[in-house]
Amino acid sequence: MKRSLPLAIVFIGGIIYFFAYFTPHYFSEYILQQKILVDWLKILGLFAFVIGLYSLIHLHATKIKRKVDNWQYSVMTLTGLTIMFIFGILVPEKFGGGIDQGSIYDWIFMNVQVPLQATMFSLLAFYITSAAFRAFKARSVEATCLLIAATIVMLGRVPLGESIRSATKGFLDFPLWTQWILDVPNMATKRAITFGVALGMIATSLKIMFGIERSWLGGSE
């Protein structure tokens, strides 16, 4: 029951919806596709979020309760979450609550979350430069191909490439070469990878539908 019921649902759901895609009948178009696939599944999605939320709260609450190292930071995480919850959901709009522009929630988003997230990812600029300096070496013919292509693209995507083109009267045309690299060899290899990924996804979908792939069930029971 614990395993066979979910496996049966996956199999029956998979088969029905595989054929629903090709069936232009009211039942398929309206009931299966609009009602169940769209209206029902998006409601299911709402509840899936709860698992993530619970895990986060549980993790940090446990850290605080057990006073593990750096537990004070967990207090900050939970405080941030609680403040957003209070102003976003509990406080009425006339007191600055709600999620509209101009609300306290929106102010915190724009002035706390946006700069924090944007800066966090901007750190990668420093690390990629350091990595390029230390590790981007022409150790073999293959690595040299990679290095030359990367250098051409780096030059062709910035105004310097345009300036060199003008200065050499089109002899060193990095923007054109960049476009060609992206359009031809890059496109060809990415297409080959797309085939592989798509076939892999379809094969996995079929394996899930037919119960061959069962890792999603988790646990042994």
Binding site: A125, T129, A132, F133, R134, F136, K137, A138, R139, L147, T151, M154, L155, R157, V158, P159, L160
Partner: peptide
């Protein structure tokens, strides 16, 4: 931002060249 992008790319290319000379 494009002017900064320009100079950053030049610097990275120089660093890559230096790294390869050292290698």
């Amino acid at each position: 931002g494009m002017a900064s992008q320009n100079w950053a790319h030049i610097m990275i290319i120089i660093l890559i060249v230096l790294g390869n000379i050292s290698f």
